[in-house]
Amino acid sequence: MTQTILLAAGGTGGHLFPATALAQELTRRGFAVELATDERAEQYGTDFPARAVYRVPSATFTSRKPLAVMKTLGRLGSGFLRARRLLEMVQPHVVVGFGGYPTLPPIMAARSLGIPTVIHEQNAVMGRANRLLSRFADAIALSFSSTKHLRRSAEKRAQVTGNPVRDAVLSYRNVAYVPPEPAGRLLVLIFGGSQGAHFFSEMLPPALERMPSPLRWRLTVVQQVRPEDLASVREAYKQADIAAHLAPFFRDLPERMANAHLVISRAGASTVAELTAIGRPALLVPLPHALDNDQLENAMRLEEGGGGWCLRQADITVERLSEELERLFGAPDMLAKAAAKSKAMANTDAVKKLAELVEELAGPEE
Rank of each mutant, 00 (worst) to 15 (best):
W217D: 14
L219V: 14
T220L: 12
V221S: 01
V221H: 02
V222Y: 04
V222K: 00
Q224C: 12
R226V: 04
P227Y: 14
E228V: 10
L230T: 08
A231H: 15
S232M: 11
V233L: 01
E235W: 10
A236I: 15
A236M: 12
A240Y: 11
D241I: 08
H245I: 09
A247F: 14
P248A: 07
F250A: 03
R251Q: 08
R251F: 15
D252N: 11
R256S: 11
R256Q: 12
A260R: 02
H261D: 12
S265H: 01
S265C: 02
R266I: 02
A267D: 04
A267I: 08
A269L: 05
V272Y: 11
E274A: 01
I278E: 09
G279M: 07
L284Y: 05
V285C: 05
P286V: 02
P288L: 12
A290Q: 04
D292H: 11
N293G: 10
A299E: 09
G306M: 11
G308Q: 15
G308N: 14
Q313R: 07
I316E: 06
V318G: 09
S322E: 11
E323L: 04
L325F: 07
R327T: 15
G330H: 06
M334H: 13
M334Y: 15
A339M: 06
A340L: 12
S342G: 06
A344H: 09
